[in-house]
Write a protein that binds this DNA or RNA. Structure first.
Lengths: 196, 196
DNA sequence: TGTACATCAGTGAACGCGCGTTCACTGATGTAC
DNA sequence: TGTACATCAGTGAACGCGCGTTCACTGATGTAC
């Protein structure tokens, strides 16, 4: 019931922040305990005072990455909506932006990690499923009430797939063209507002 | 210019076949040289008589996986088209089938590996970009002539994303429902044939 | 306020293990005459 | 057809390295009186 977070809690948060970025940058299998601790300014020995295992860190870090990303998305949407974009257009233009294409480390955890998710431990898989549900809920909230059921699932799938295929093609004209094609198709199919 | 493949060429093919399945099952980072060789019935020492490095194997195996998968898709499509489905419906019903959901090891290499692709060596990345282009071309061929430019990119993105999100949710009712929602949305938006 | 002690966060060396890669060797296959 | 030799595919031990995890310790912080 303490108000001020303890020194340990602050360190814990710092490790999580670091790990949440690292898993998106390097993948679940690409991050090591020692790497994370070093990047957080610590030595690796102290790790097990904070987490039961590497797997426990991955699960917590994935949830943390989802929060970081959701905050960013909300902030970007607010800006675009203030400029007159519909909630759906704001979401699509932010998610399928060139900034998101090149900003894997700070972007959507699902897009950064989707194909690795089924291969993780049960704890991490559970956190991953939550991330997917949370993304679909985010999409659902941007749709007009009365949208066809299942639309959010279809739209979320396309958003994630688009970002991944674009990144696989590369952060170049080819990848950007694929993103643009997806923006266009999604807005034509689901948006109600006039182009901003 | 020999007609019959040499003993070495046969072994090479067997290693590739094994590796092409292993990378889809376990991911690029999840397969080791020794694992692959053992699964192919060999000892690990002989590996470097066949491949310059682990990375060289990954690149070749990815291309190989694409071929395996393309053959499967073509076969499935032929069956469904013989039953009266349009080329597009045949593609969607095969790709977004429950069989594909649970058959990662023999399925589309892009869906199995997309989020790991940007983190690979240049050789593997080049092979990955080819796989993405090849998938988009496959979709393009299933569309009626005169489809909007960019449709194939948007559809391929949704197909890949749908399979990945469904797998992240799990091979259960939730994952299957997500697949079904995507089938429905794609067929409603792009298919011209009556429901089979 | 000051001293003595307990608690606690973080350090750094060490562990066992599995990895990618190398290499001397073996035994089978193919070639020359 | 048979023998002698060269070639070649695959074997298995060994290497250096980095990983996840453990643990005895240190130095700072907090508490008791």
């Amino acid at each position: 019931m303490e108000i001020a977070p303890s020194r340990k809690a602050l360190t814990h948060e710092r490790i999580l922040d670091t790990a949440a970025r690292a898993i998106r940058r390097a993948g679940f299998q690409g991050v090591g305990v020692a790497d994370i601790m070093k990047e957080a300014g610590l030595t690796h020995g102290g790790f097990y005072a904070h987490f039961a295992s590497r797997d426990a860190l991955l699960a917590e870090a994935l949830a943390h990455a989802g929060q970081q990303s959701a905050e960013r998305i909300a902030k970007g949407n607010a800006t675009r909506e203030a400029r007159g974009a519909s909630p759906f257009r704001a979401l699509i233009e932010g998610y399928l932006s060139e900034r998101h294409l090149s900003g894997t480390e700070n972007g959507c955890a699902v897009a950064a990690l989707a194909s690795e998710m089924p291969r993780q431990s049960p704890d991490v898989r559970a956190a991953a499923a939550q991330r997917v549900r949370s993304l679909m809920a985010l999409v659902q909230r941007s749709l007009p009430t009365g949208a066809a059921p299942g639309s959010a699932a279809a739209i979320a799938s396309q958003m994630v797939g688009a970002l991944q295929l674009a990144r696989a093609l590369g952060d170049n004209a080819e990848g950007k063209a694929l993103l643009a094609a997806n923006r266009k198709a999604l807005l034509a199919a689901y948006d109600v507002s006039p182009p901003g």
